[in-house]
């Protein structure tokens, strides 16, 4: 009973952020766009990261990037480079910065910032097309960013 109630509360609040998380406005990027410090202090879960990368309602990274490790998910895009080998090309800190706000690494990139909650032009309430009725949340939570970083770190060429 207790456990069910807890799950329900979590489900209702949706993106419940833990108090220990770094706020999107407080993330420190170095001059190359990398983020050295974990956003949560809790290690990422690579398996969950893989789900987020493929899930339309989460990262939906495969909309733009092909990833061989997720070949069972149909329709990978070609707007961004293939992510195979991303774990060789980038350090964990660089990957964290890329997912949190890729514009800090690649100026003007089309890649959206996944850990940012202000500074937008006409932001909407997710995909409803309507103005938001509550303050915006970042697209992914701090822990979801860490999970995606953990998954990308597993993408090695050999």
């Amino acid at each position: 009973m207790k456990l069910r109630l807890l799950t329900l509360v979590c489900a209702m609040t949706g993106f419940a952020a833990s108090a220990a998380d770094t706020d999107p406005k407080d993330v420190t990027y170095d001059e190359y766009g990398a983020v050295e410090v974990s956003l949560t202090g809790v290690g990422g879960d690579a398996a969950n990261g893989a789900l987020i990368v493929g899930d339309k309602s989460k990262g939906n990274c495969v909309a733009c990037h092909a990833v061989t490790a997720l070949a069972d998910i149909p329709f990978h895009g070609e707007v961004g480079p293939m992510l195979d080998g991303a774990g060789d090309r980038w350090t964990e800190a660089e990957l964290r910065g890329l997912i949190a706000n890729a514009k800090m690494t690649f100026e003007g990139t089309v890649m959206p910032a996944f850990y940012k909650d202000d500074g937008y032009i006409r932001p909407g309430d997710a995909y409803t097309g309507k103005a938001p009725s509550a303050p915006l949340a970042s697209i992914l939570t701090a822990q979801e960013i860490e999970d995606v970083v953990a998954f990308l770190a597993t993408l090695k060429e050999e």
């Binding site: 990978h76 895009g77 089309v110 937008y120 032009i121 006409r122 909407g124 697209i139």
Partner: peptide, 28 residues
């Protein structure tokens, strides 16, 4: 050329910079 919304994408980002590319199942 205005990058609207939380994804910060303009018409040009998709239809000028990326026409011919696949975005998920859609051919831009």
């Amino acid at each position: 050329y205005t990058r609207y919304g939380q994804l910060e994408l303009s018409c040009a980002n998709c239809h000028e910079d990326n026409w011919g590319n696949m975005i998920r199942a859609d051919h831009l």
